[in-house]
């Protein structure tokens, strides 16, 4: 398996967030929405690879995009890559979102950098009606609005401080939108607390939902059992692993930590 690919473009989205386009025909070919790649970021202090979900796939060009917010040593090192640099990437890994023909109306709910995997989902999902709800901390954090607009029948952006779009949490938007008209499935990705609330809202309305989780990973392929998350079983619980059993889980199955 060839792990060395090439950075094709870097596009700054805001102060600390950028989109990296990588040429990797095999990954672009087989990658599905919700799956992730495991990237060797390099630098003196980023030893482990870092997982990034596929944000946009261009199968014709053989490229895909990942969205990166500089948050630590790994993403800091990644921000130093330039166009045409070689980059060591494994993947695609994980299960991905469901793409069901029976789901005619869907809603995607993204918070912060959790919006990234939802873009490719919208690009590939066969639903005839797509509602997109995105939440950000403030106006400076809003990313990819136009891309989401292009792939949605309706897009609503909210900011926590009201500096852009609706004021408040994206979960409140979800609640009122589902009140107006139900959907067949909701796809959620964002901070843990936001996902927890969004799942509760869907549950109350008996609408199936899927969440894409994030956890610190070791190997990224299911060997080290590092990225555990708590899941409900019929009368018990167990640890599943985000890299192999996920990163996408049915919302009802996840036991969110307090």
């Amino acid at each position: 398996m060839n792990l060395i690919h090439r950075v094709r473009a870097i596009k700054q989205l805001n102060e600390d967030t950028f989109l990296m386009t990588i040429e990797a025909p095999e990954i672009a070919d087989t990658g599905k929405p919700g799956q992730f790649v495991n990237v060797k970021c390099g630098g003196p202090h980023a030893y482990l690879r870092r997982p990034f979900s596929l944000c946009r796939i261009d199968r014709e060009r053989g490229t895909f995009d990942i969205g990166v917010q500089i948050r630590g040593r790994g993403t800091e090192a990644l921000s130093r890559f330039c166009e045409n640099d070689p980059i060591d990437i494994m993947g695609p890994f994980g299960n991905g979102f469901s793409l069901n023909r029976e789901d005619r109306r869907i809603a995607v709910v993204g918070g912060g950098i959790g919006v990234f995997p939802l873009l490719q989902l919208l690009r590939e999902h066969p639903a005839s009606e797509k509602l997109t709800l995105l939440g950000f901390r403030n106006r400076n954090q809003v990313v990819l609005e136009e891309s989401f607009q292009n792939k949605s029948d309706e897009l609503v952006v909210a900011t926590d401080d009201g500096s852009y779009g609706a004021r408040g949490f994206v979960t409140s938007l979800l609640e009122s939108k589902l009140e107006e008209s139900p959907v067949d499935r909701v796809f959620i990705c964002g901070p843990a607390l936001m996902m927890k609330h969004a799942v509760e809202i869907c549950k109350a309305k008996s609408i199936p939902c899927e969440v894409s989780l994030e956890e610190r990973m070791g190997c990224g392929i299911g060997a080290c059992l590092g990225c555990a998350c708590k899941v409900r079983l019929s009368d018990d619980w167990d640890y599943a692993h985000v890299c192999k059993d996920g990163p996408v889980f049915s919302g009802e199955s996840i036991v969110f930590q307090e």
Binding site: H45, A46, Y47, L48, R73, E215, R216, M217, G218, C224, L225, G226, C227, A228, C229, K230, D238, Y239, Q257
Partner: peptide, 23 residues
């Protein structure tokens, strides 16, 4: 064995800490 609660992995300079706990 179910193992320990997450997070189970922490990166450190040139290494990692794990607390998988024999899952």
């Amino acid at each position: 064995r179910k193992g320990n609660p997450p997070p189970r992995i922490a990166e450190t300079p040139a290494g990692i800490l794990n607390s998988v706990g024999l899952q």
